[in-house]
Design a binder for these strands. Structure first.
Lengths: 225, 225
DNA sequence: TCTTCGATCAGCAGAATTCGCATACAGCAT
DNA sequence: ATGCTGTATGCGAATTCTGCTGATCGAAGA
């Protein structure tokens, strides 16, 4: 697991880096908001540990910018500010957890494990992967080996849902609600058409993955071979 | 969002139910560990709020059992115990967040939103088990040991009913209503045909479970050996 | 206890109908 | 113009249903 630590108190930062190393994590440390944001946007991290009080740009702004750029990396806020509104604000703009100083390193590690466990194999470097498929969430490109396709918005949304759910079956109603929205008059046929488009592209790329239909129920991904 | 609240302090439970209602969440409340676990295993919830100190079975045990049954519903622990080891233990056996009493309801709601947001597009794994059989409600797969079968829609609905009712007898009329719907001209023979399909698959998997016919009444599951 | 008879059930195979697929085309926005 | 999106249609496939035959069960009477 690769971690980005954004924390300006050098003593604390160093201590955490040591602890993370002991736990076999790869860590990069930043000491101000701007460089933290730059590094975060590289998209290579599995988790970001973010302090609130930072030089140049505070943690709240960094987090906001990260989410505005559609980066989905899990963020754990780590701060001395413990008012409820601070916590609520951060959680609501996209933080995944929030710990107040002073804190126990064991608890921090446990919370990181918990967060990572739930998102394991789902999002890595801001792309979604499943079997030999990789979907870039920023460019809407779908990769399989050396081949790639740029997907349209609807195709992309559908592929995203499939990749996030793997072999779990998604009903057409679910797909309609998640892709076209709760109130829409999209019909089953719309789903079928886009499934057909995606299948065509998967075949072109010789992917091992196929979209399997479960008659009367919905669709799911399936790995061939 | 449908929430299961497992909390034995009635005053707190009632207050939370009110708060959840205000936020348009659907809530079911349980007051002890055993009934909480039963309800959790139904698999219909999007999130579980779980107290630690509970009659009959404590929260730790409930959580352990939930994860042992491969249920992936997010669980937020809510408890008076605030030692680090308690937190670490719970997070490591599968809790997604941990709050200590007393807590702010606003923070609770924010943490719930955060947890829900991150998993918004993921269908949680839900399974039903009885004896050596496990039915994955997300993939329509029926497992027995290493063997598995993908079930069709009607087979699946029937198996789901059987597993939910265990050794309780289900009449053909009940099965018809639940599988084919209230208004349908499906006849007893339809039920018999699908019972036969399922029996064939159970035999193939060498399951200890058999569908027993109770002549003139209906069917139920039976464990052999 | 054994036998008999009617009712109920299992299992198969082929028919039917629903459901899904692919393609074509029109509308719209960029 | 180009590409994305939504709608319509006929074909194809798989599940689901129906009808039938033989098997099994259980009650009642000898």
């Amino acid at each position: 697991m690769r971690i980005l630590l954004i924390e300006d108190e050098v003593a604390l930062s160093d201590a955490l880096v040591q602890i993370f190393h002991k736990n076999k994590y790869i860590v990069d440390a930043c000491y101000d908001g701007e460089s933290g944001l730059d590094n975060a946007l590289s998209g290579i991290y599995d988790m970001i540990i973010l302090d609130f009080m930072l030089p140049k740009m505070n943690g709240y702004e960094v987090l906001k910018e990260i989410r505005a750029k559609k980066l989905t990396t899990p963020v754990l806020m780590l701060t001395a500010r413990d008012t409820v509104t601070d916590k609520v604000d951060c959680l609501d703009i996209g933080a995944d957890d929030y710990m107040t100083k002073p804190f126990s390193s064991d608890e921090l590690l446990a919370r990181m494990r918990s967060l990572y466990r739930r998102n394991a194999n789902v999002i890595f470097e801001n792309v979604l992967t499943w079997s030999d498929l990789t979907l870039n969430l920023s460019t809407y490109e779908l990769f399989c080996g050396n081949n790639s396709f740029k997907l349209g918005l609807k195709e992309f949304s559908m592929m995203e849902l499939f990749l996030k759910n793997g072999s779990r079956i998604l009903s057409k109603e679910t797909l309609i609600v998640k892709i076209w929205g709760y109130e829409s008059d999209a019909e089953n046929n719309n789903v079928e058409v886009y499934v057909s488009f995606l299948r065509k592209k998967l075949a072109h790329m010789h992917s091992k993955v196929a979209i399997k239909t479960v008659r009367g129920v919905g669709y799911c991904l399936e790995e061939k071979g």
